[in-house]
Design a protein around this nucleic acid. Structure first.
Length: 830
RNA sequence: GCCGGGAUGGUGGAAUGGUAAACGCAGCGGACUCAAAAUCCGCCGGUCGCAAGACCUUGCGAGUUCGAGUCUCGCUCCCGGUACCA
């Protein structure tokens, strides 16, 4: 019987398809398990990264089903987005047509890999039946103040012709096309994610068991909580005050000047009528131009500033502090003004050196003798207060509290918390996205669309612009509307939503993908969510995962769902590399899954992706590696094919102690059960699919050695049949087509994919003779074989009598003998 | 700079304080074959030794422990994230 993967894979894929083999249903008494992989963007073809991601998810989904869970394992399409528009412009095809054609192709490719998805819950986010609910959420968000409109400087990608959220600017470049991001003043729609900063941070503690630590850390850093104080510095001329935020209010006695951003609201007042006025204006204009050209967050630039001509007063020392406009002060963080403490902050130190400004040491390290003369850099560590009036001699952490108390009781400031997180700009000046359901009326202003008028459907009949500009502002059929309030003529919002809005709730929609009258069935949401296991690339550690966490909390507060966190456990899989670097079309180092499937079959491709490395780690695609995987698949096939017609019908772990009459039979039974324990533990507890597969390989290797002997007796056949069934059961989540076929060929009952995960018995794993390792002073000196029931005293005596052990203990005194039951004896001598 | 992760044979990787190198890949030897491929069986960290065995070996240096790849401390290098965030 020759192994023909194309034939058997097609056969079983049709069977699963006809039988709706993997549909989930809630209720039914079984415990629920929601296994989800990040849905793909329909770019046209799946790549090896998808294969790895979805193979990991499929092993888990199938394994959980075998363990008796009712598993929800859905798939869908993150279908709005720029590539569709760009392809449309290039190939003169409508983005919708391009997108749906790609979906059809990729669905075919996924089906060809035999993934056990519930295709009845498939969704595409570009469909009005999907995004209509998103528009409804937006109306609720608007009503609750979670969605709002504001004018501000925005990240602008000149190539994509649209704004970007902060999270989508990577090292100053657009996350999609790597263009330098510019700043542009625009009025945009925002979601108030900052209102949830506290909860987003605090709830990370609920995820410590199931999420990788580095993802938690990245989110924590991104949210960026800083605890400090706000301090008021009165202007010397008595006409107001500058407020600053500082995490180091303990160093306030060392504040010798003030730095403010070029966009500070008091700047006009500070320079008005001063001789520096013109020069400052020129400097600010220069900064503005540079900011537009230069990427946000590009590498550090030389510190520069200019004196405004005004002074403020240090509330503690009473000293006058010159006020500077400085290029490193961010308008958008804190209050846009910084008290400069050159002795204890490196930036202020550099600035003071450059402009020859005074310094004062106010925190002295333990046994330090810092002076302004001997300092070559700022000291930002802990220490003892000095030059700080009544606070001298205190440690600086204590002083922090006392100074905050003083500020509060003297009305000069207060304790404050500042966040790095900014509100989420969701407006996009592009066509292929979900319309924002808002209307502008000359009479009534900004008016939300009525819920009963949803969905606001994206028009299909539009002419795209070659430069990527959205056609919506030129499409009167779309933007002309009547005001829901006064009935007069009005204009629709023509920006669309960021595609990350769609991916922020799709996991919830899967629980009731065909609901027509509501976004979710609350019962279904409650029974399935949170997602038990989420699997995807670490590149979404901040973007998608932070947005989704926020979105769920916002939906909860609007009464749509009862849920705090969307994903209970997260697995971030590594990349598939080629010659040490990421596969990419431009480098020409890609491997096309379709051609690999054509050559080896889906089972081999799945096996290799799972065996090459543990899931979290990157691995290199190698031709010899997939050859090796194919060799194992063939080896399993041959082993079973040779046994067809010779074995009794059996299930995994069905042989009994009575059947194991010979040494070979006992050993086989032992190894069968040991492999099941190892493979089950590795898959369930650790996602170590590579070692689970290795355990099955060992068992297969053993069966090759003993099969002839076991075929001699009927008891032996029972033992062999049981072990063979176990091999197939264990491999079913990994190479499901082959195991279904072999299960059927061997005449075993039912289907491999509907077998329960085998249960090992401790009795089978008892050995009659055990090997005990003997160490002398921790060094391996021998091994002894003893019957399992030997007492500790007898084992210790045997260990001491072992010839090589004797040699190493001769003439020495035995101080101690340690015994690790069934494993090891360590003789301590001196 | 700060935060996180890592370093084990020729190679991908095992080892949940107790036999370091499981299972693969590559390589070598044997069987089968007219021959080759495929397959099956065996060997495969280093040094010394005829052998029994001894010594060395998990990036480097210390420590805890009867016993450390694993725990602790101090370094080196690599990867990822993030950065004028006050």
């Amino acid at each position: 019987m020759k192994y023909n993967p194309q034939e058997i894979e097609n056969k079983w894929q049709s069977v699963w398809n006809e039988e709706d083999a993997f549909n989930a249903s809630y209720g039914g008494g079984k415990p629920h398990f929601y296994c989800l992989e990040m849905f793909p963007y329909p770019s046209g073809n799946i790549h090896m990264g998808h294969v790895r991601n979805y193979s990991i998810g499929d092993v888990l989904a199938r394994f959980k089903r075998m363990q008796g869970y009712n598993v929800l394992h859905p798939m869908g399409w993150d279908a709005f987005g720029l590539p569709a528009e760009n392809a449309a412009i290039q190939n003169n095809i409508h983005p919708a047509k391009w997108t749906y054609a790609n979906i059809d192709n990729m669905r075919k490719q996924l089906k060809r890999l035999g993934y056990s998805y519930d295709w009845k819950t498939e969704i595409a986010t570009c469909h009005p039946d999907y995004y209509r609910w998103e528009q409804l959420f937006f109306l609720h968000f608007y009503e609750k103040g979670i969605a709002y409109r504001k004018k501000a400087a925005q990240n602008w990608c000149p190539k994509c012709n649209t704004v970007l959220a902060n999270e989508q600017v990577i090292e100053g470049e657009c996350w999609r096309c790597d263009s330098k991001v510019e700043q542009k003043e625009l009025t945009q729609w925002f979601l108030r994610i900052t209102d949830y900063a506290d909860e987003l941070l605090a709830d990370l503690d609920k995820l410590t068991d199931g999420w990788p630590e580095r993802v938690l850390t990245m989110q924590k850093n991104w949210i960026g909580k800083s605890i400090g104080a706000e301090i008021e510095f009165e202007l010397a001329e008595g006409n107001g005050a500058i407020r600053v935020f500082s995490t180091r209010q303990d160093t306030v006695f060392g504040a010798t000047f003030m730095s403010i951003s070029g966009e500070h609201p008091l700047l006009e007042q500070l320079i008005k009528g001063k001789e520096q006025e013109a020069a400052v204006r020129a400097f600010v204009e220069k900064l503005r131009l540079e900011a537009q050209k230069n990427a946000v967050g590009a590498e550090a630039i030389e510190k520069e500033g200019i004196f405004t001509g005004s002074y403020c007063k240090n509330p503690f020392t009473g000293d006058l502090m010159p006020i500077f406009v400085a290029n490193f002060v961010l308008a958008g963080y804190g209050t846009g003004a910084v008290m400069a403490v050159p002795a204890h902050d490196q930036r202020d130190f550099d600035f003071a050196k450059k402009y020859n400004l005074p310094m004062r040491v106010v925190v002295q390290p333990k046994d330090g003798d810092l002076t302004i003369e001997n300092m070559t850099e700022a000291y930002s560590g802990q220490g003892i207060m000095q030059n700080s009036g009544e606070y001298d001699g205190l440690d600086n952490e204590t002083a922090k509290g006392r100074i905050a108390d003083w500020l509060e009781s003297n009305n000069k400031g207060k304790r404050t918390v500042t966040w790095r997180l900014r509100d989420w700009n969701i407006s996009r000046q592009r066509y292929w996205g979900a319309p924002i359901p808002m209307i502008y009326c000359d009479k009534c202003g900004v008016v939300p669309e009525k819920a009963e008028n949803l969905p606001v459907v994206l028009p299909m009949d539009v002419q795209t612009h070659p430069d990527g500009r959205s056609p919506l502002p030129d499409t009167p059929e779309f933007y002309r509307c009547t005001c829901p309030k006064c009935g007069g003529e009005a204009r629709r919002e023509t920006d669309t939503m960021d595609t990350f809005v769609e991916s922020s709730w799709y996991f919830a929609r899967y629980t009731g993908a065909r609901e027509e009258d509501r976004a979710f069935n609350p019962e279904a949401v409650k029974s399935w969510l949170p997602v038990d296991q989420y699997i995807g690339g670490v590149e979404h550690a901040i973007l998608h995962l932070l947005y989704s966490r926020f979105f769920v909390k916002a939906l909860r507060d609007c009464g749509f769902i009862e849920l705090d966190e969307p994903f209970a456990r997260l697995l971030t899989q590594g990349m598939v590399l080629m010659d040490g670097s990421k596969m990419s079309k431009s480098k020409g180092n890609t491997v096309d899954p379709t051609s690999m499937i054509a050559k080896y079959g889906a089972d081999t491709v799945r096996l290799f992706c799972l065996f090459a490395a543990p899931p979290e780690r990157d691995f290199d695609w190698t031709d010899s590696g997939i050859e090796g995987a194919n060799r194992f698949v063939q080896r399993v096939w041959r082993l079973a094919a040779e046994l067809v017609g010779q074995l009794p019908a059996a299930a995994a772990c069905s042989s009994t102690a009575d059947d194991a009459k010979t040494e070979a039979a006992r050993e086989t039974r032992y190894r069968e059960h040991a492999a099941i324990k190892k493979a089950g533990d590795d898959i369930a507890d650790r996602f170590q699919f590579n070692t689970a597969i290795a355990a099955v390989m060992e068992l297969v290797n053993h069966l090759y050695l003993v099969k002839e002997e076991l075929l001699q007796t009927s008891e032996g056949k029972k033992v062999l049949a049981s072990a063979q069934a176990s091999v197939l059961a264990m491999l079913t989540p990994i190479v499901p087509h082959m195991t279904e076929e072999l299960w059927q060929l061997l005449g075993f009952d039912g289907r491999a994919s509907s077998q329960p995960w085998p249960v090992y018995s401790p009795e089978a794993m008892q050995r009659s003779v055990i090997t005990v390792v003997v160490q002398v002073n921790g060094k391996l000196r021998g091994k002894i074989e003893v019957p399992a029931e030997t007492t500790q005293a007898e084992i210790e005596a045997a260990a001491l009598a072992e010839p090589n052990v004797k040699k190493h203990t001769e003439g020495l005194t035995v101080r101690k003998v340690l015994y690790v039951p069934g494993k090891l004896v360590n003789v301590v001598v001196s």
